[in-house]
Amino acid sequence: MDAAWTCGYPYLQHKTELSLLGVPVWRGQPLYQSYLIVAQDDPATALSDLRGGAHAFSDPDSNSGFLVTASDLARDGQTPDQFFSRVIFTYGHRNVVRSVAGGLTRSGSVDGYVWEALSSAEPDLTARTKVIVRSEWLGFPPMVARADRMDEPSVMACKAALLGLSATAQGTEALKLLSLDAIEPGEDALFDGIAARIAVLSGG
């Protein structure tokens, strides 16, 4: 694997081995949020209202799909398994929305960018859910490559292509499909918020 579009959480977990190729710009900034969603008719308005219910996470290595909610609970000294009656990993943000919309779980932690994109692509699906909690703005999932290969021509060409997408018609079309504005070089500081949550979860 030469390059990958990954979440900020695993990027930070493997910060020593990875370097940024670029960070997508969504709605004018390289940031996104984690959403806590419930069914459309659920009366819950906060995470605390979801105690005892089943919860769907996207992936244990996902920032928006796990880390944000887990760290919020960690701040209160709780773990997901303790707080929720049942926790399932759907291994996909769309599956989290399906899980909540279908009633398999009462709530779910989902990438805000994915939920918003789904609301355009599959409005019937997202219409059966609602967002009750939005996290703070966090660093958008970056494109990364191995740090020791950043000087290789292919990696450099890939980086240049990603960063130049907004300058070409084809690139703009690709970005439009992804609901993105552009890809910028990005900085590690964008992921400080995620790093802070990692620290909370790890008890630091």
């Binding site: 990993f89 291994y91 399906r98 279908g102 398999l104």
Partner: peptide, 10 residues
């Protein structure tokens, strides 16, 4: 695996 079973049924 609850999700997998649900996913297949769905």
């Amino acid at each position: 695996d609850v999700w997998e079973v649900y996913d297949i049924l769905d």
